[in-house]
Nucleic acid binder design. Structure first.
Length: 792
DNA sequence: ATCCTGATTTTTTTT
DNA sequence: AAATCAGGAT
């Protein structure tokens, strides 16, 4: 790089980076692990590194694959890179794992037996399908909710365990049952030409393992792979990276590797893999994230360059000290100590409030005060453990007329009318999609009831044809009355008309199967669609759907405020379609691309940077963000840490979540808890969160002002009092006295309040015991001291 | 096929 | 407290 034409830019690029940051940015080829503490400028490092690779001609834009955690983070990253480069970054793959996989699969799905129009099911869709499959197996839905069943399947998929492997490994009646459900569930997905979120990863791994040609092509294409938030990758994602970048060590986790190791497992490939993460911020274990991925990166790549970023540019020292001392209670982490030059700053405000309403009033009162003093509402975030907790705070904000936004919870795309409209489009694109068909067929009501639907779908399954085809020729469906035949005929006629608008081949006539077969055998999957796709603009199609289907008409007939709101939501959706049409001018705005984009929006993507909006969200959604002022609410044992986490040994992850929350704050941090809180409508009383006791007392201001100070703002320093109203003697009492724990021995018989009889199969440090329960054969980790478990 | 009502459940966290 | 669901009446 002696006479680099970009020399000037290069220097500028490296100018205001600190030493380790610069080391990470300028690292050349080969594996790179960046351990980036909270607020240490990792996004900046990633953006600069991408720009550096391009400036030094180590990569073209099109040779870079950069994975972020959310779409929002991806577009922010793209902006930064473009600002650094001074030009657009077309062709650079900067997106989430799921988006990247969906994009690859669109081009290659044919090789795996799907058409490129395959549907992506979101969690709600998947759950409905899981419920159907569980019903078919005869699973008692009281005992195992569809969500729980789906979780099991999802966990298996995240570990790349397919149906056959799962059933072979099943070690309990419970697992055998889940295996049966998994089997049906997966068959249904394939038959419907659909994938759930986990399939996007799983099938991409399949593709790269099975087809050497594709594997080599993508390896060559992505000469440099960068991954943000590496601590939250799961096994499937790990495997995917290995296939793309070439592994270091062969796979040791997952299934048996050994001698007969397949070719793809061997460490070939460019190994230009740069990952950024912070093990202290791993908070997605519940959805399969494997913290071991980051902890063992150096085992996978013994020659990896390791860079630690420990200087924090975000928070005051007070906030960092609190975060450091809390996280010190976790074990088995990569040692890191955050420090800052921003000075001590203000004390952390801690408050105990009467109940959740008082808590909300306190938070809103403080927000009011800060805004009066000149703060922008956009500088303030209120965080909580579960989505349901937003409501009380929202009420208080509304009452005080403070503008706010809620991230997550009931999303726009989860509203019934939006899902209906999307389901119409999905069915038009993918005539095999039974879930969309059943959703849409009788909505609005047109006399196609549950029995009719069941007969049609059963017929389709029996004849091995698409639902569309079955519904299009209703007279062939056994058992249908003449009214049902007529209703179906009318419905399908208008659907056929709408499908014609999309420019897709007509469907449901005789030659249908050839259509899929032709698509499946069409070789040479490329990056562009083989034909067609130039159909109508999405907005136009949507309007036609809503009119033709009688959907809008039915809502108008209702004449209710609620229906009016739904109509407005649908208008908003049409607007989304219009924006998509305009944004895609160069590429063809195909229906499937639109549906894919809609399916993969995350809560966090909907965040607005609008000035003047206070932001409310869960702690999970706050990952990666920062605010001058942060409120963390609901700091009670059982709420945060969540009771289920306490029961199941998830305390360390909860603690990391708290760490994430604390480190979002730049200058002011508020921690609040309520003594009494309504849970499911019933009142419950909780102790202050144990995390509060892990913060050194001198960092906290417990508020002495105000009426009945002692009564409502108990002090950690004070103590001795007995009841709640007398102060938080409990907090002090709790400090340091948690260590004592009931001891269980290996092999001991125990009884759990919820799970019933079980036996201790493992004893771990920190009072964690492993118990296998007779009821369902499940094995759970419990905190001996806190879980409702006794010796028998 | 559709509507109503009472019972049951829901709350972790999410791509 | 709200939402979904099952069962039964129309």
């Amino acid at each position: 790089m002696a006479a680099n034409p970009h020399a000037e830019h290069l220097q500028e690029l490296l100018e205001d980076l600190n030493e380790p940051q610069r080391e990470a940015v300028t690292h050349g080829e080969g594996p790179l692990l960046i351990l980036a503490g909270a607020g240490s400028g990792k996004t900046r490092v990633l953006a600069h590194r991408i720009a550096f690779l391009i400036y030094t001609d180590q990569a073209q834009a099109g040779e870079i694959l950069a994975i972020t955690f959310t779409n929002k983070a991806a577009s922010e990253m793209r902006e930064r890179v473009e600002r650094l480069l001074g030009h657009a970054t077309r062709g650079m793959w900067l997106m989430t794992f799921h988006s990247a996989c969906a994009r690859i699969l669109r081009a290659e799905a044919v090789r795996l037996g799907y058409t490129r129009q395959f549907t992506i099911y979101d969690q709600a869709d998947s759950r409905r399908l899981a419920k159907r499959s569980a019903d078919a197996v005869g699973v008692d839905p009281k005992r195992y909710t569809p969500a729980a069943v789906l979780n099991q399947i999802s966990a298996a998929k995240n570990k790349l365990i397919d149906v056959d492997d799962y059933r072979r490994q099943a070690a309990s009646p419970f697992e055998e049952m889940i295996g049966e459900v998994y089997d049906i569930y997966q068959r249904d997905l394939v038959r419907m030409n659909a994938m759930d979120f986990d399939d996007l990863l799983f099938r991409t791994v399949n593709l790269l393992e099975l087809f050497e040609e594709a594997r080599e092509r993508y390896r060559v294409t992505f000469r440099h792979v960068l991954v943000d938030e590496y601590q939250d990758t799961n096994h499937a994602q790990y495997r995917l990276l290995q296939l793309l970048a070439g592994g270091g060590a062969p796979p040791k986790r997952g299934r048996e590797a050994g001698d007969g190791e397949p070719a793809y497992a061997r460490p070939v490939g460019h190994r230009n893999l740069a990952v950024v993460g912070d093990d202290a911020q791993s908070i997605y274990g519940f959805r399969g994230a494997d913290i071991e991925n980051i902890l063992r990166f150096q085992d996978d790549f013994p020659d990896a360059r390791v860079v630690k970023l420990e200087q924090n540019y975000r928070s005051t020292e007070t906030i960092l000290q609190a975060a450091n001392s809390v996280i010190a209670n976790n074990r088995g982490q990569i040692g890191k100590k955050l420090w800052s030059e921003l000075g001590q700053g203000e004390q952390i405000q801690m408050r105990a409030l009467q109940d959740e309403h008082a808590e909300a009033r306190y938070v809103v009162g403080e927000i009011q005060r800060l805004v009066d003093e000149g703060a922008s509402r956009a500088e303030i975030a209120v965080l909580y453990r579960t989505n349901a907790m937003s409501r009380v705070i929202e009420d208080a904000l509304v009452r005080s007329e403070i503008a706010y936004q809620v991230i997550g919870g009931t999303k726009f795309y989860e509203r019934a009318e939006i899902k209906d409209a999307i389901a119409y489009l999905t069915l038009l694109a993918n005539p095999y999609d039974v879930v969309s068909f059943t959703r849409v067929a009788n909505s609005p009501r047109r006399g196609i009831g549950a029995t009719t639907l069941a007969r049609v779908t059963a017929h389709a399954a029996a004849m091995d044809i698409s639902v569309w085809e079955a519904a299009a020729r209703p007279q062939e469906v056994p058992g249908l009355g003449s009214a049902a035949v007529k209703a179906l005929g009318r419905f399908m006629a208008s659907m056929a008309e709408l499908r014609a608008m999309t420019g897709a081949e007509p469907f449901g006539g005789e030659g249908e199967d050839e259509a899929r077969v032709a698509q499946l055998t069409a070789d040479a999957p490329g990056d562009e669609p083989q034909r067609g796709g130039q159909g109508v603009p999405i907005a136009e199609l949507l309007e036609a759907v809503l009119a033709q289907s009688g959907y809008i008409e039915a809502l108008e007939a209702e004449r209710s405020i609620e229906a009016q709101g739904r109509i407005e939501n649908l208008e908003q959706l049409v607007e989304v379609g219009r924006e998509f049409d305009e944004a895609e001018q160069d590429a063809e705005p195909t229906l499937e691309r639109f549906l894919q984009e809609v399916a993969l929006v995350a809560d966090a993507d909907t965040r607005s940077d609008d000035e003047g909006l206070v932001t409310l969200m869960t702690l999970h959604n706050a990952k990666g963000l920062e605010y001058p002022t942060v409120f963390i609410t609901g700091l009670e044992d059982g709420v945060f840490p969540h009771s289920r986490a306490i029961d199941e040994g998830g305390l360390e992850e909860e603690r990391r979540l708290f760490y994430v929350g604390v480190t979002r704050a730049m200058r002011k941090l508020y921690l609040t808890y309520a003594r009494r809180r309504a849970v499911f409508g019933a009142q419950s009383y909780g102790m202050p969160s144990r995390f509060l006791t892990e913060i050194p007392g001198d960092l906290l201001d417990e508020g002495t002002e105000g009426f009945g100070a002692g009564a409502f703002t108990p002090s950690l320093a004070r103590g001795g009092e007995t009841a709640w109203s007398a102060g938080a003697g409990q907090v002090k009492a709790a400090r340091g006295e948690r260590a004592a724990s009931a001891s269980f021995r290996l092999g001991e018989d125990v009884v759990h309040a919820a799970f019933g009889d079980g036996v201790v199969t493992g004893v771990e440090p920190d009072g964690v015991i492993v118990v296998r329960f007779a009821g369902d054969g499940s094995e759970r980790k419990l905190m001996a001291e806190y879980a409702p478990v006794t010796k028998r």
